[in-house]
Write a protein that binds this DNA or RNA. Structure first.
Lengths: 320, 320
DNA sequence: TTGTAAGCGTTATCAA
DNA sequence: TTGATAACGCTTACAA
């Protein structure tokens, strides 16, 4: 592998000059620039990233704290991130936490000890204080609605999305509405919960603790929900479900048990995953790919802290 | 950030000694070792990976050529790889190709120019010759059945899996069997095709070009298959489908169109994805997580070229 | 068993 | 507009 010295020798200039053309710095005559470019071509020169990183004190590595990669919500997010990272010539370091706060802390420590240039937290497990304590070591961006002076935030209007979803169900005549959520804690989950409560309040509708199903992530969880639903004395007539995977599980299980959708039980999903279309599920589409890209650009724009929100769109199909 | 020099000074030893304890080298007295460990603790010392990489001439980066990450087959594979990479203290560089041979070539060039230490090709798009030409630059491992002196191979017995799947369908009384596949080219696809043809031959059964559906990856593709199936004059009575996603699409579309499964059309999927259980699809389970891990260990064991094959298991449910 | 010092391939400071 | 040269933090002959 040819190095910068070889190029300099071949082009009859100093390494500094080579470095200058490499980095597009001024003060290089066209003549020399061309000589350098020729030399690089001839010697098949490629920069040694490690040397650059060492010299600059940067890693070009971006940590990504993510609970799982095999869930559509997160894999879409990851897709967006990886695309943008490639574009910006950074590589992503995957830190799968499974919502383990300790794993997440390890990622924060990586930032502290300069193992990575920045950290993206797709879903947070530690308290806000803990995370904020690490901002002095590098840019942190979270995927939740937080206005903070020190950590950037890229999120979706979960409150509004839930509110609109609820309105849609109410318009269709429902009053007794339950909902399914991944976990009870977490900013996004709480905003959704808030949206749920607030909407019910506007129509002075009933609210039952047992209509709220948590730990809903997968198709299997959807099946479990139907099981729990059937054992209820007072059943909701509609379900707002924060994942199409879960909604799919619910719909398929309803079919098995002869529960008519939407007549007996209406279902509104989230994400607009292909499975939703296949099962004719109404759903709320989220721009996860875009969010993923923005997370990366925000992390890379380390100087400013950025606050961004994305919208959503309701997709009406046959399950409501 | 404390560096190795600081540690050496604090512990009253030379940097070499620190480096020795860091790397578990012999010839360090317990006394000094402890002093160094104390110093590292006290100063919150962390190694600078870039310096190590530069010094050793290694990147600790492993390229992963993968068509998509948002398909269960590949996301399971990726999960296994990322787990093992973490374990071995390497990071994965994702190169999503969407089966674009040029993108894959870029990855091979990264290997040539030492941007990565090794390359894993989860699904190959370039010709074998092209890939083999790059082995001199670093270890390459492919996820397909190839015995080669220079590139490692980790694969699943696709031929046997297909053969066994076919036997299962035949035992259930089927003679007219079609199949769905992602793409026609590719070693794995051809092995499957071979298994299909060979089994049909053993029972002297019919074989129809129009019973073979290619470009099948997603739920949508499954729906498309059912459409094509219905327009057939002479219809197969069973379908061997190389992805549970596609099988799910088929089954759901059959339901919409009142095609009885398995009476009218039997379906056997691949992967044993959760969706298969939910839809009561018989399927063939592949140890993708294990394969992913092995891909990484093989890539890291750069000295030897390794040839490994994994089995599979038939899971009987209600769709056959 | 320990330490000195020469790389590894860049960038950046300073002087020319 | 150019070029020496000193970092960057670590590993590894080689010497002691």
């Amino acid at each position: 592998m040819a190095n910068i010295k070889d190029v300099a020798r071949y082009a009859n200039v100093s390494v500094t000059t080579v470095s200058r053309v490499l980095n597009g710095h001024p003060y290089v005559t066209n003549e020399k620039r061309e000589a350098v470019e020729e030399a690089m071509e001839a010697l098949h020169y490629r920069q040694n990233m490690n040397a650059i990183h060492l010299s600059k004190g940067k890693t070009r590595l971006l940590g990504v704290v993510i609970p799982f990669v095999d869930h559509p919500y997160f894999s879409l997010l990851l897709n967006g991130m990886s695309k943008e990272a490639l574009h910006q010539e950074h590589t992503l370091v995957l830190i799968q936490t499974n919502y383990d706060a300790m794993k997440e802390l390890e990622a924060l420590e990586m930032l502290k000890y300069k193992q990575i240039d920045g950290l993206i937290i797709a879903s947070r497990s530690n308290t806000w204080d803990v995370v904020e304590g690490y901002t002095e070591f590098g840019p942190i961006v979270v995927c939740e609605d937080r206005s903070s002076d020190v950590v950037s935030s890229v999120s979706i209007r979960h409150y509004d999305a839930f509110y609109e979803g609820m309105q849609h169900l109410i318009e269709k005549g429902h009053q007794k509405i339950g909902f399914c959520i991944a976990r009870k804690t977490g900013t996004n989950s709480q905003l959704r919960y808030q949206g749920y409560r607030d909407t019910l309040h506007t129509i002075q509708a009933d609210y039952k603790e047992e209509w709220i199903f948590s730990n809903c992530l997968s198709i299997e969880d959807g099946e479990r929900v139907v099981d729990a639903y059937q054992s209820l004395d007072d059943k909701p007539t509609a379900l707002l479900v924060t994942s199409d995977q879960v909604a799919a599980g619910i719909r398929m299980e309803c079919q098995k048990r002869n529960i008519a959708v939407p007549e007996e039980l209406a279902i509104l999903g989230f994400d607009n995953h292909p499975i939703a279309r296949a099962l004719d599920l109404s759903t709320i589409e989220l721009p996860l790919h875009e969010v993923g890209r923005k997370l990366v650009t925000s992390a890379l724009d380390g100087n400013r802290t950025i606050y961004t929100q994305y919208g959503f769109s309701l997709i009406e199909r046959g399950s409501v």
